[in-house]
Amino acid sequence: MKIVIVNYGMGNIYSIQNALKFLGFASEYSDDPAKISNADKIILPGVGSYRKAMQNIISKDLKNPIKEAVEKKGNPILGICLGMQLLGISSTEDGYTKGLGLFDGIVERFDEKCNLKIPHIGYNEVMPASNSVLFQSIKENPDFYFVHSYRMMSPIENGITTCNYGENFIAAFEQNNVFGTQFHPEKSQTNGLILLKNFLSV
């Protein structure tokens, strides 16, 4: 199985690879469009600014290879944190930026009216979607590590895992071969390791 972690210059390059290695899977960190479109599994990581991330993806010519692999070949993709947000339609971070459009969700800043500390940092419980593939064999309301100031909302109801931080937002989604987690599975101890393993078993 060829697992490619998309390298577009955003985020912690080692932790995901270390986690996969711990689970016994080799992976490659690459910005090669051909490798990405031929990958059996794609992981889109990311920490940082949405606008800059999309600029990097476009300037490295990675947008079409990702979309081709996911939409035409049906290969599974997992977006993590900013990577999940990029799978959506758009974000209002640093002005309006269009995402990859693989999932019907839009990203906006947490509602300041909730009067909670932003960024939302730390472990929080999530409510897994019913019949979730990602959360298979993970107990009810598991905790995962979050660190973000923007969150995704979606009109879609199926396959949505939610978390509450002043308001309900999307903690994870799964729709056919498109998966995303707002939290960091590679930073969520055993819970996250099992989730990654579930994704690799899709």
Binding site: I138, P142, Y145, Q189, T190, N191, I194, K197, S201
Partner: peptide, 15 residues
Amino acid sequence: HMANFLPLKKVKQPV
């Protein structure tokens, strides 16, 4: 409230 984690040995089991 502390995060609850699954036991490590569960990670090692096949899915």
